[in-house]
Write a protein that binds this DNA or RNA. Structure first.
Lengths: 226, 226
DNA sequence: CTCTTATGGTGTCGGCCTGACACTTATGGT
DNA sequence: ACCATAAGTGTCAGGCCGACACCATAAGAG
């Protein structure tokens, strides 16, 4: 590291906030009021304050825009192409967050204003800046994590049925999964615990499960070499 | 993304440069001449110039400090704790690079000055700033990538024997691998091609292999769900 | 009360991948 | 020629995975 000079690069965080609503994977977008890209949709973001860590900044943006706290948040990638912002040099540290719908305030779940909305993550509107790249990268990472780890619970309420869990996986991966194999694997992974409650919705009641907090989230992945 | 104000956060890149020398995984460190941490060892790094992308900055630092070009380089993580630098707020985008020893200029392979040196990656000296964290994270990522992908070739010369490849893997993973299983797997992955050359070093000659450039580097990983 | 309907829940079998394991082959040096 | 040393090769057993079909249970309709 050489010594310092002033270079005036602005630093922001952008947060890709995912949730499941109406059996679809949604992402929170904000409509831009000012130039550049006025009127277009963009990821929630903001400048990093001088005394706050990057993750703190991301949590602040997450809370300001979605009202959610204590949710899964992970650094995604840092985007710094010199002209990704036409005004000045802006480098952004992108995060992605998984929020279960029941942790969102009601006015955020169904925003009244047209300035903010939950969009289908796989069919977003045109986005400002390089946010389409950021979203695409976040989706890739989410699918990847879902395939190798147990992070899907973060999008569900405290307790859930195995069918609900499977539907969440199918929604995000966009493919059908075999019910028996899904159950076998997810139970063998040892990351769920039964509750003694059931969910009865007109038909045979389904057992509710809960995520085992003590279980390491990075569960069963396979190694190329032993 | 809200609108801009001046916040004077400095932005740097730090590059964890790995190579294999003397049958050990080494990392390039630079001795700091100035405060803070004067006299301590640190990762090569530098400020991001106003008109260059993050990856360009990382390649520039990589070239300035090691003389290597056209090598494997990947963004690692962005470290931004508010007081990771005691002078001022500095956020650093860390990269890691894999360089085969034969692409290093001779004076870099065996530096004369005591201001720069290749240190055992698993037994580094005390490091300035939070560079020990960055190095630990890079090692974890390197092991991970090695287990799941075929990235190990980047540390070897253009052609190499399977035993050399296996030794590289054993050095980095710090465990012994079975010769027959290693060969079976690495050949089944289809990322190598035979050359018709052999390496004869006093005993039975070993066939030389080459990395198939057309092969996708992200090769055979396993999915948790089909 | 019974029947219908819709979802919840369960087991097996074959194929493939993986990990454990030992001997023969080829060369250079003595 | 003999020896030392590294290169190179195959099998077998266990576990994991993917494919596949039927019974159980509750609510609601008649």
């Amino acid at each position: 590291m050489s010594e310092c000079f002033d270079q005036r690069i602005a630093l922001t965080v952008d947060v890709v906030i995912f949730t499941l609503l109406d059996n679809a994977l949604k992402v929170l977008l904000i409509r831009r009021r000012r130039e550049p890209f006025a009127g277009m949709w963009a990821l929630p973001g903001g400048f990093v304050h001088p005394q706050e860590s990057l993750e703190d900044a991301a949590r602040r943006v997450l809370y300001e825009e979605s009202g959610a706290t204590d949710v899964y948040l992970e650094q995604l990638y840092t985007f710094g192409h010199p002209d990704r912002d036409p005004r000045q040099r802006v480098v952004t540290v992108a995060y992605f967050a998984l929020v279960s719908a029941d942790r969102l305030p009601l006015d955020v779940q169904s925003p009244r204003s047209s300035e903010r909305g939950w969009w289908p993550a796989y069919e977003p509107p045109p986005l400002a800046f390089d946010h389409a790249d950021i979203l695409a990268y976040a989706l890739q990472r989410l699918r990847y994590k879902l395939e190798y780890t147990a992070v899907g619970f973060q999008l569900l309420p405290e307790t859930f049925t195995l069918t609900e869990l499977q539907m969440a996986y199918e929604t995000i991966l966009r493919e059908q999964l075999d019910k028996r194999n899904f159950r076998r694997k997810v139970l063998a992974a040892g990351i769920l615990e039964e509750t003694d409650a059931f969910k009865s919705g007109g038909h045979r009641p389904a057992r509710l499960y809960r995520f085992r907090r003590e279980a390491t989230v990075e569960s069963t992945a396979r190694r190329l070499f032993p």
